[in-house]
Design a protein around this nucleic acid. Structure first.
Length: 105
DNA sequence: GTCGTGACTAGCC
DNA sequence: CGGCTAGCCACGA
């Protein structure tokens, strides 16, 4: 599995996350084929966001805010963690004391 | 080609 | 619980 494919897969998976739900970096990496590439996932997402901002809205927008950490913490966000939390709350995700109640079906 | 970095995780104290 | 440490992978300089 080439890494380029990995990146593509990661982005696709993130895009496939339904509204009101979240997914951990670990799970995404695992589904993408590299169970231990969570770090890279974060990097890719961040880079994607940067690219997105660079090219305004010319590229497929990715709901990076639906990606959280396995610890239950929200994690980071290119536009600010607070913004991420706000968005998640708006979508119906339960967040208590900066911790996310993530549940896969 | 090599090195440093990070939107992370699991394990140990 | 909370803090610290080592391990992992892609990306950019």
């Amino acid at each position: 599995m080439p890494k380029e494919k990995f990146k593509e897969k990661v982005l696709t998976l993130v895009k496939m996350i339904p509204k009101g739900k979240v997914m951990t970096y670990k799970e995404i990496a695992k589904r993408a084929g590299y169970p231990r590439a969570w770090r890279a996932v974060g990097n890719i997402l961040r880079h994607s966001a940067e690219f997105s901002q660079n090219h305004k809205n010319r590229n497929p927008k990715i709901p990076c805010h639906r990606v959280i950490r396995s610890d239950g913490k929200v994690g980071g966000y290119f536009y600010g963690t607070k913004k991420k939390i706000s968005l998640l709350k708006k979508e119906g995700v339960i967040i208590k004391n900066q911790r996310v109640n993530y549940n896969f079906n």
